[in-house]
Amino acid sequence: MTYKAILNGKTLKGETTTEAVDAATAEKVFKQYANDNGVDGEWTYDDATKTFTVTE
């Protein structure tokens, strides 16, 4: 399944996708990606669109 992350960081804005077996696995991948890029904020998840959003 393909999951998407939308990054609304102070220094990084954009989107990325990952293939994962479930939302929990995708969330770990996206949170690591955000952390590696200095983005730390509030996370939300929309199951209907399989989209995570982080906003700083």
Rank of each mutant, 00 (worst) to 15 (best):
V54L: 13
T11F: 14
K4P: 04
T16G: 04
E19W: 15
G14I: 15
G9P: 03
V39P: 01
A26F: 01
E19D: 11
D46W: 03
M1C: 12
F52T: 01
N8F: 10
N37I: 14
F52Y: 05
Y3D: 05
T16L: 15
L7Q: 01
V21N: 11
V54W: 12
K50L: 12
E15D: 05
D22Y: 02
I6Y: 07
A5D: 04
G14C: 15
T2H: 08
L7K: 00
V39H: 04
D47S: 11
E56Y: 10
E19T: 14
K28A: 13
D36F: 10
T16W: 15
D36N: 08
A34T: 05
V39M: 11
G14H: 12
D46K: 03
I6R: 05
D46E: 07
E27T: 04
T18I: 14
A20C: 09
L12V: 13
L12E: 06
E42V: 14
K28Q: 12
T17E: 10
E42T: 13
D40Q: 13
T18N: 03
V21I: 13
V21G: 10
N37C: 13
G14F: 15
T49P: 00
T16H: 12
I6G: 02
G41F: 05
F52L: 01
K28H: 08
T11N: 13
Q32N: 08
F30I: 02
N8M: 11
V29T: 10
K13E: 05
T18Q: 05
G41K: 02
A48E: 13
I6A: 03
T18E: 03
A48W: 07
A20W: 02
K50E: 02
E15W: 14
T51F: 02
T51N: 02
T18W: 08
Y3E: 03
A23N: 06
Q32G: 06
E56R: 01
D46H: 06
F30K: 00
G14K: 14
K31V: 07
K4S: 06
T17R: 07
Y45F: 06
D36H: 07
Y33N: 02
E19S: 11
T53I: 09
K50Q: 10
W43A: 01
E19M: 14
G38N: 09
W43N: 01
A48R: 10
A23E: 07
E42Y: 13
T17S: 12
D47R: 07
